[in-house]
Structures are given as C-alpha cells and as structure tokens.
Amino acid sequence: MTDTRYLELPDGRRIAHRFTPGTGPTIVFLPGYMSDMSGSKATALFEMAQAAGRPCLLVDYSGCGESPGDFADGTLSRWRDEVLAVIAAAGLEQVVLVGSSMGGWLMLMVAEALAESGKVKGLVGIAAAPDFTEWGIAQMDKNMLADGETIWEDNPYGPEPTPTHPGFWADGQANLMLDREIAWDGPARLLHGQRDTDVPWDISVRLAERLRSADVQVMLIKDGDHRLSREPDIHLLLRTVAELVLARDPAA
C-alpha cells in the first residue's frame, strides 16, 4: 500500500486517501457505513491495480478511518462531496466506481453528480444498500430520528453499538433512489450474497430495475453473507472489476 495523502477542503476538513497511478480508468472504492479504506476488499482491489499497472483510489470519508472529524457530522451528501473533491483534485478523467453496502448508495450519487462529465465508465456494487434509511429502519426508530434523537443498534461486527444520527437519516431520506429511474446508461455489476442479513438481496434486484441502463447484471452468491470477504468472494470481485475496466479501456 502507498502512503496516505490528505486533501484539505475549504472548510478545513482533511480527507485521507491513497492513490496508485497506472493506465486506463481509475478504480475508485467507496467503503460502507463506519468502514474505511483498510478493509479486505479495498486492499485487494488496490493490490490488484498495482500489480496490473492500473490506477486505483481509496478514500476515507470524514470521521472515518484516517480522516479526522466527528462521525456524527457525516451524511451521504457530505461524503459524496468529499469523494467528488478527491476525484477532481487527483485529475481523474475516467473512473469505475466500486461501492460496498452504503458505499453502493454513494456510488450512485457520485455517478449522477458526474453524469454530464462522462467520467464514470462503470459501476460495481457489493451488497449495495441504497435507501437503507427507509427500508432498514423501523418506524418507531424513524420517529425518534425525526425528533432529533440518535438510535443505537447491535453491531454484529464489533463490540460497540452502531449509531444512526438524525442528520444522516434526514439526508438519506432526501436522497432516496429506489422510487425513481436512475439515469445511468453504462455497465453496472451488482454482487450480493443471499445469506446477507443486513441488506436483503432483493435490493440489488430492485436497483437493477431502477437503473436505466440495459447493461446491468445481478450476481447472486447463494452462500454469501453481507461482507462478501471470503477468498472466493474477493476473487469474484476482482474478476468483475478487472473485466469492466478492461472492457472500457480502448488501449487494453
């Protein structure tokens, strides 16, 4: 892995990221909720890109991983703008966005924001979770969030409970996507485990229906869980991303 770099935004936020140069579209990995660029999928993609001479960008949202800040201040819109700022600062001309869980929602938001630029050449979702502030939260908890309270849920991946802050929830509700057409016309590959207890696999099917593109494939892993971080899952991810990058690279 290369050293961590920091992009300072006008308001003082410092966004940690790692970049390896190369030829062809840049693989941009967007981690999930309370995750960061040190995870196994991000690391595997980065190492694959380095070995193949392909560019890859990893990002930590503010308040996550190596980016300073308060996680409670984070929202989808705020993190989308941070990703866009790092892409712009790096001068990336073509990108393939890879989004894991919540990162799959951000992937769609970034793709829409860059639609007119033509920069985005492909999407790869890993248990993509658009609209989880709607379908993933009970009505009683929504009422608490609407009243400005933080809710806490058991965390199957660590000892500390998982918070949902009212600002994040409200911003998510303002950016729902599964109730409309998503104006994306390029290739999209959606990987999802059918034993995912966090994001139902039918979310990827619904997303495929909402994407305007005809070049959309949903790949269901029958015994796969939410993380899809086992060795065969990682191999499927790497193969899927590599095929998409090569297919969109005229020099390949």
Rank of each mutant, 00 (worst) to 15 (best):
S100Q: 11
V83Y: 10
P55V: 04
L244A: 13
R54W: 08
L45V: 05
K142M: 06
L76C: 11
V199G: 03
E134H: 08
S77K: 12
H165G: 00
A247N: 11
G65F: 09
P250Y: 10
I15D: 02
G158W: 15
P200I: 12
A88W: 09
E8K: 10
I126C: 04
R54Y: 02
R189V: 06
S229D: 11
L76K: 13
L9N: 05
H17N: 15
E8T: 15
S67M: 05
G172C: 03
Y157Q: 03
E112K: 13
P25N: 14
D196T: 11
G103V: 14
K222P: 01
R5I: 00
L45W: 05
W152E: 03
P55W: 06
E209H: 08
D154E: 13
A72C: 05
L176D: 06
T2M: 02
A115R: 15
L58H: 15
P156H: 08
A252D: 11
S77N: 06
P163E: 08
D225R: 13
D11F: 03
L176Q: 12
P55C: 03
A88V: 09
R18D: 03
R206M: 07
V98D: 00
M140E: 12
T26S: 08
E243W: 12
T26P: 01
E8W: 04
T133W: 11
L207N: 09
V205D: 02
E181S: 12
P166W: 05
G22R: 01
K119C: 04
N155H: 07
S101Y: 14
I15T: 09
F29C: 00
E82A: 04
S213I: 08
V86C: 04
E112M: 09
V59S: 06
T240I: 02
R14D: 02
G22H: 02
G91M: 01
G148K: 13
T26F: 01
M140A: 14
V98K: 02
V95M: 01
G63M: 08
V28A: 11
R13M: 05
A183N: 11
Q194D: 10
T162H: 00
L228E: 08
E149R: 14
P25E: 10
V110M: 04
S213E: 04
E209N: 06
K142I: 02
T26N: 04
V95Q: 01
I27P: 00
I27G: 00
R18K: 14
D147K: 15
G39D: 06
M177L: 15
D225I: 00
Q194Y: 10
Q173E: 03
L220R: 11
G193D: 03
V96C: 07
D147Y: 11
P68L: 02
R189T: 07
T164Y: 06
G69M: 05
S67G: 05
A85C: 06
E231A: 14
L176G: 04
P31L: 06
K121D: 01
V83N: 03
T197C: 00
L244R: 13
A188M: 08
V216W: 05
